[in-house]
Amino acid sequence: MKSLKTIATLAAAVLALAAPLAAHAEVNLLNVSYDPTRELYQDYNAAFAKYWKGKGGDTVTVKQSHGGSGKQARAVIDGLDADVVTLALAYDIDEIGEKAKLIPANWQKRLPHNSSPYTSTIVFLVRKGNPKKVRDWNDLIRPDVKVITPNPKTSGGARWNYLAAWGYALKQKGGNEAKAKEFVTKLFKNVPVLDSGARGSTTTFVQRGQGDVLLAWENEAFLAVNELGKDKFEIVVPSVSILAEPPVTVVDKVVDRKGTRKVAEEYLKYLYTPAGQEIAAKHYYRPIDKNIAAKYAKVFPKVKLFTIDDTFGGWKAAQKKHFADGGVFDQIYGPGK
């Protein structure tokens, strides 16, 4: 029985210790985001806090949570108190609206540019000197080339990779659905390791020395080159790729309950200002602001970009056709293949 008392004391101690972990400062925002935006929001949160204080607002502390885009969306659906979500694809935010009714269905219309304050695209990361002479998508299906990409079923980033390849095949002369499927099937035959997340794939490619090409977000490729060795890797930009639009939104039910709507909305709007755009560009996200884009034109090579809406009819359709169970991606890996 003594032990029961000990437990009770311990439990009380835990609660006492846990309380200060939860709250301090005047306004607390929680930004639930996906993996590659860590560095971006670290800088941005500091800039915004300064800006908001300068405007006579409260002291804002923005806490960050990062993880796979889908996992993060699920956490919000299951009750993680996110004031804002900044995820990899609109589909994941749609699910927050649909499954948990935390945001209205028209959320993507509320901020300019499909609620995507910055964009990115899919590029190739190759080993220095490009020993396999990989120039464009069709080099990826050569039998001597090994391609590293995460699994589209578990990684949001990998879905962009897959759709970019599909779109490329579709847009070739005489391209059609059947040819696109054949192309993507061949491409995935060249994939020796399917990691579950984007950063896992980067590690497999960079640290373990697997594969010749890594398919990655442009910002991830830049980061990998800068962090892990300019002398070891280089970026190859294909002739055409997909316009990746990572969207942001306020989580209405949460901000209304917490009374943080005003500052949360400002937090997202600030992303669209020149200052916010500049931070995005510095972290290798393509800015949508014309002036800032012009300023960073040297960094971002021109690529012909197609969008998910005009090529695939939006995320819902793409998800259902390609990535749902029994969808095209599963057929590629079907039994007997």
Binding site: L21, A22, L30, D35, R38, E39, K63, Q64, S65, H66, G67, Q72, A75, R199, T202, T203, L223, A224, E227, L228
Partner: peptide, 20 residues
């Protein structure tokens, strides 16, 4: 995964690892 609030050592390791 809230940084500084609900991260245990293993989760913190993952964060650092994911930051290269």
């Amino acid at each position: 995964h809230i940084r500084g609030a609900t991260n245990t050592i293993p989760l913190h390791v993952e964060i650092l690892y994911n930051e290269y």
